[in-house]
Amino acid sequence: MTNDGRTAIVTGASRGIGKAIAERLAHDGFAVVVNYASQAAEAQQTIESIKAAGGRAIAMQADVADEAAVAAMFDTATREFGGIDVVVSCAGIMVLGPVAEFDLDAFDRMHRINVRGTFIVDQFAARHVRNGGAIINVSTSAERQGLPGYAAYAASKGAVEAIGMILARELRGRDITVNTVAPGPTATDLFLNGKDEATIDRLAKLNPLERLGTPADIAEVVSFLAGRTRWVNGQVIYANGGMN
């Protein structure tokens, strides 16, 4: 399938997994809207990387949990590129801690971005993605591991998986696929922050390949769902090297 003339919006694309996804989709031929919340300089680096490789991209600041900002982002994408074919909801934060001691303000902030943000982005995607397109959410493999300290984060991502599974069925007749990619431990700032070497090494060895994933590993799965299959739909794809 050629993706020339097709457009993708990637939220949380200024760094980490989102950045790798934006760059990979641009490589695949999509014009890309690089969404960011506050990392303007990093988003511009993503744009420059895409353009240096011959791709097309624009940066768009938007708080994904703010429906007016998301509406403006979708309007800009349509105006600049003529329509929207793929939406990847990757924006999210991770706060860890045991249930008994978890800060509820941090809980609310994380669920605002991870759950409300994904819901709003998917809501606009359901309204605007053209037939033949794809909606892809990003979750986590952590909920299947039951790791202590991950309850609040895994709960937010469990909601993300439910949104995608149900939206796929709500879009019956539209020829739009909706799937969720659930990465395992991946070498990003989000994952590495606050962890010592022993913890990182232990988590890396949870899978039989005995390494951390890379953002490019996850981007490859998104690329497949975005443009190389029409028969995977309503699924959660665990991209974790066999951890589960």
Rank of each mutant, 00 (worst) to 15 (best):
D66G: 06
G234Q: 06
A59K: 08
V64K: 01
A125D: 05
M110I: 10
T76H: 03
Y238A: 15
Q45H: 11
L190Q: 14
P183Y: 04
G194N: 04
L147K: 09
I200D: 06
Y238W: 15
T7V: 10
M73H: 01
Q61K: 11
V95C: 08
M110L: 09
H111K: 10
A216E: 14
D103E: 13
I120L: 09
R230H: 15
R127I: 04
G242Q: 09
D201W: 09
E197A: 15
R15D: 13
R130T: 10
A62T: 06
T11W: 04
R6W: 01
R109E: 12
L167A: 02
S141Q: 15
T180K: 03
A142T: 02
R174M: 06
G82Q: 12
R228W: 11
G242D: 12
S139W: 02
A65I: 02
M1C: 12
Q44L: 10
E80N: 09
G16R: 01
G29C: 11
Q145G: 14
K195Q: 14
N114R: 07
A198W: 12
A57Y: 01
G132N: 02
N137K: 00
G133R: 00
V99R: 03
L104A: 08
E67V: 06
G12Y: 00
T2L: 13
D122M: 10
I17M: 11
T11C: 03
L147D: 08
G12W: 01
R228V: 05
E161H: 12
